[in-house]
Design a protein around this nucleic acid. Sequence first.
DNA 1: TTTGAAAATGACAACCATTTCCATTTCTGC
DNA 2: GCAGAAATGGAAATGGTTGTCATTTTCAAA
Lengths: 121, 121
Amino acid sequence: MSKSGTKVLNALERVGGFASAQELHLVLKRNQESIGLTTVYRALQTLVADKSVDLLRREDGEAIYRLCGDAHHHHLVCKNCGKTVEIEGGVIEKWAQKSGDEHGFRDIGHTAEIFGICSDC
Amino acid sequence: MSKSGTKVLNALERVGGFASAQELHLVLKRNQESIGLTTVYRALQTLVADKSVDLLRREDGEAIYRLCGDAHHHHLVCKNCGKTVEIEGGVIEKWAQKSGDEHGFRDIGHTAEIFGICSDC
DNA sequence: TTTGAAAATGACAACCATTTCCATTTCTGC
DNA sequence: GCAGAAATGGAAATGGTTGTCATTTTCAAA
């Protein structure tokens, strides 16, 4: 793990939720951590590839990131306030595997997100 | 409904699925329909506000649109050659709705894609 | 310790979807 | 036909994200 990767992870822990790359960059700057915006983006790309961090999208298309546990799960996200609930997705795993099998695909993976408006909004 | 709104709706029908604003603009140009990109964007904004069209996001953040009431389906995509199969997703609809309900969310929507390697690759 | 190649870094420029601006054209009611 | 409102579209601006490339750091081998 590069020095920057660690810094970005720490920043993500500190904000404790979603943050865009630009927001993380600001947090780090405020904390006297010298780091370039480009490096933040690169560190995030690596972390996402390593599955240490989740990548989602705000409604306006901006990428937002957050720490993610190891277990494969899905998210229910409020389109308004960003509140997030982790959802068990066994049904989806089976559906993806079955659909892939039926069409002769192998190395099946999938993505799935649910969004809506939460009870507080 | 403005003239442009009609053209954009027709284009959406013609492509029969998801399309980005830029793709729709291309489709219209190819069909000898003179229309500006700006106008396509404006028409889409209006159609989304009217709930005639759904707005979703590609993985890269680009906005994609589809007619409301279109049969909602999902895609099985080959990571290697791009071959795509349309998948029925009733299971997912129910899963998304149920998960949303359980946590008090309303206006539930979802995205789901399956990817893998097809039999030809 | 020195060295040299590979990886990491960051300022800056490039990219591209989307929006804003504004001048021109088209529509609508009178 | 006329005036005002709405629609249109080309050009420029915006803003998140990625590419470029020269410089710095890391680190293992000599």
